[in-house]
Design a protein around this nucleic acid. Structure first.
Lengths: 335, 335
DNA sequence: TTGAAAGCGCTAACAA
DNA sequence: TTGTTAGCGCTTTCAA
């Protein structure tokens, strides 16, 4: 394998010149530039990333930490992150935690071994705050999808509160006034915000006190919520449901069907995220759409800006708007 | 940041000894081992991956090349790959090609810059054979999900032919005898095998000559196939459909619904893959399940074995069994 | 406009 | 059982 020395010898210049001819960090005369270029081509030379990393103290690798890449939401996020990283000359380590804090901490070895230049952290609630903070040190890190109150880091999230509000407003417009909210894990700020926004708008709009349930952000959780509140639904004491994510909404639709309730005729259901599967479900799921690819993109640009010293590691919250997507799982209240 | 020299000074031994105390590649007396361990802890030392990579000429990084991580199938695959890689001390670069051969070739810069030790290639039909082969050189590479006749590489695939056979057999058992097959892209061996297996078993079982359609492996492709053959379906000249992947099957279900045809009552539909969304769809999709996580796992173990010299880069085909998953989109023929 | 040489932080051959 | 030292292939300071 040709090294920079080979190129230098071949082009009859010093390695310094070859290095600069490649990087452009120093003026190199046109003639020499050409000679170097030719030599590189003839030898099929490509600089060694390992050597560059060691010499420069940076790897041009980003770590993307997600709980589960099989979850459509995080897959879309990964897409945005990876695409943006590549465009800026960075590669992306896929780090899936499986919601396992031990495994999560093990990834932090990447940090301590200086294998990554920065981290896009989208793994929900991180392990005990201080621990993570300590281990992260001052490695450029941005939070995506989930804010962590105690972590003074740049954060990229959707407007969860407004999304909740939009869902409530829409259901009220359809004439509903008895609802149920299905939240995710307790410690997730995103879920809390969605439910809070929904509840506020619901009350402001004159809806009755919502029934409150919790489904752990999983499909099964949503399914079980329906089973647990079947009587309410059957007696039409609840005519619409707001789920804090699509996975739960999908589980809810499933359970309704299995218990001979029809959506939207009997029960309107609205989710949050707009994952791919929301479009396959029957009825097609009405939901609050997050532009998650954009979220990933901005977050990635932000870490890279910090890595390359173009911006500070401040703790700004960057909030993206969400959008109500009306499909078939919601309908006007029929009495 | 502490380096190995700092540890050596602190423990009053040579760097060599520190190196060996860590790697275990050479006997180190217990006392010294302890001193080194203590020194490491006190200094918070973690070896630099960049330096190790340069010195050893290997990075302990694998490249995972997939067309689209947003596709549930590849997401599951990635899960298997990443998990297995981590377990063996390797990290995984996520490389999504978006089915774009230019982008795909750009990833090969990773190869030429010796940034990865091996490649798990799951990107469907690769760019013009020889080109890829040349660029890959002798970097350990395994193919997953799709075999490439001209590439003499270890290959990990599901038993596509048998899966097709199983689908046909099942539909025949249900009493169907008029069917339509919906294939993927022409150049994909996987699709061809599934259709071939189906067709063979169908004929052997006495079914009528199948209607042949093609849907490009996408949901929209499946949807459009239904639109194009609507009359056949409405006149019940086709009572069941075999789609070579779930995405198309989902599109088919969608189109049937939109055109007031009911599955399974009017038309039985069977897919292939068993992606997550197959379970959310209504009716729940009957399909041929691939154990894609296992596929990814074996493939990853195989590249690593080659990287670490435990096995040869032979061109063995490794074929995993598939399984018929009966859900709600198939039913006995009613006349 | 160019080059010499000192690292970057490890590993491993060779020596003791 | 341990140490000395020469790389690995770059980047970058300093000097010309």
């Amino acid at each position: 394998m040709a090294s920079i020395r080979d190129v230098a010898l071949h082009a009859d210049v010093s390695v310094t010149t070859v290095s600069h001819a490649i990087s452009g960090k120093r003026k190199v005369s046109e003639g020499v530039r050409q000679r170097v270029k030719t030599a590189m081509e003839e030898l099929g030379y490509v600089p060694s990333r390992s050597a560059q990393s060691l010499a420069q103290g940076r790897t041009r690798i980003l770590g993307l930490v997600v709980p589960d890449i099989g979850n459509g939401y995080f897959a879309e996020l990964a897409k945005g992150v990876e695409r943006t990283a590549i465009a800026q000359g960075y590669n992306t380590f896929l780090c899936t935690t499986g919601f396992d804090h031990a495994r999560e901490l093990s990834y932090l070895e990447l940090v301590r071994s200086r294998a990554v230049d920065g981290i896009v952290y989208a793994a929900g609630a991180p392990p005990s705050g201080p621990e993570l903070a300590r281990v992260l040190g001052n490695l450029p890190t941005v939070l995506v999808d989930e804010e962590v109150p105690w972590a003074p880091l740049p954060t990229f999230i959707s407007d969860n509160f407004e999304g909740g509000r939009a869902a409530a407003t829409y259901l009220l417009e359809l004439g509903h006034h008895q609802t149920m909210t299905v939240g995710g894990p307790e410690d997730l700020e995103s879920s809390a915000q969605r439910i809070a926004g929904f509840t506020q708008a619901w009350r402001d709009g004159g809806g009755e006190q919502p029934v409150i349930a919790s489904g752990g952000f999983t499909e099964k959780g949503g399914y079980d919520v329906v089973k647990a509140h079947l009587d309410l639904l059957q007696r039409k004491e609840v005519t619409c449901v707001f789920a804090a994510n699509d996975l739960m909404a999908l589980g809810i639709l499933d359970a309704l069907y299995d218990h001979r309730l029809t959506s939207p005729a009997d029960i309107s259901v609205i989710g949050f995220d707009d994952i791919g599967a929301a479009r396959y479900a029957r009825p097609h799921l009405t939901t609050i759409r997050q532009d998650v690819a954009a979220l990933g993109s901005s977050a990635t640009r932000a870490v890279i800006d910090i890595v390359e010293g173009r911006s500070e590691n401040d703790a700004r919250r960057n909030v993206r708007p969400v959008e109500l997507i009306v499909r078939d799982s919601t309908a006007p209240l029929t009495t």
